[in-house]
């Protein structure tokens, strides 16, 4: 367990039954620990526990708007008392070719990813988790 917790942890909110097992598998194969929730309330409870504390919150847009998912991610981060530097990433569902392949920063630590392929998401998560964990380590050293 302690070894598993040492892995970078992603809190995944993915409502689509087809996508969820595939995304979980792909994240785990990249070496991440994945905790999942289907609702905001559950996500807050999970993220608030020592065991479930995520290093990044990943939400996949389904039905609701991108803004609603961004707000959901921010509320989870705030209500579960996570570090404000914990990144929130929303992957967009429908978009034009002009946005494809772009990761757009929409807040201090919040991003919307317009995926061209799965590797784009893995690259973004890798970069953000590296930055987030480095920032946490620096904070621990200076506290």
């Amino acid at each position: 367990m302690s070894q598993e917790k040492a892995l970078p942890t992603i809190l995944l909110i993915e409502l689509d039954d087809d996508t969820r097992p595939l995304l979980k598998h792909n994240l785990r194969s990249q070496g991440y620990r994945v905790i999942e929730a289907l609702e905001e309330e559950d996500a807050i409870i999970l993220a608030g526990t020592e065991k479930g504390r995520p290093d990044l919150i990943l939400l996949n847009q389904v039905k609701l708007s991108i803004d609603e998912f961004l707000h959901m991610g921010r509320r989870i981060r705030q209500t579960a008392k996570l570090l404000s530097s914990t990144p929130v990433v929303v992957t967009a569902e429908r978009f034009g070719a002009d946005l494809e392949g772009k990761n757009i920063k929409v807040g201090e630590n919040d991003y919307v990813a317009y995926l061209e392929d799965g590797q784009q998401l893995m690259n973004l998560l890798h970069r953000l988790l590296l930055e987030a964990i480095t920032s946490q380590q620096i904070k621990h050293l200076t506290d």
């Binding site: 689509d16 996508t19 595939l22 792909n26 799965g118």
Partner: peptide, 24 residues
């Protein structure tokens, strides 16, 4: 008849296993 995100992740899984290559 599925969400784009599902295809993205399924294609990624097939690509990770060197079964297909997806590019632009």
């Amino acid at each position: 008849g599925v969400r784009r995100a599902g295809v993205t992740q399924a294609a990624q899984k097939l690509q990770d296993r060197d079964l297909i290559e997806y590019n632009r």
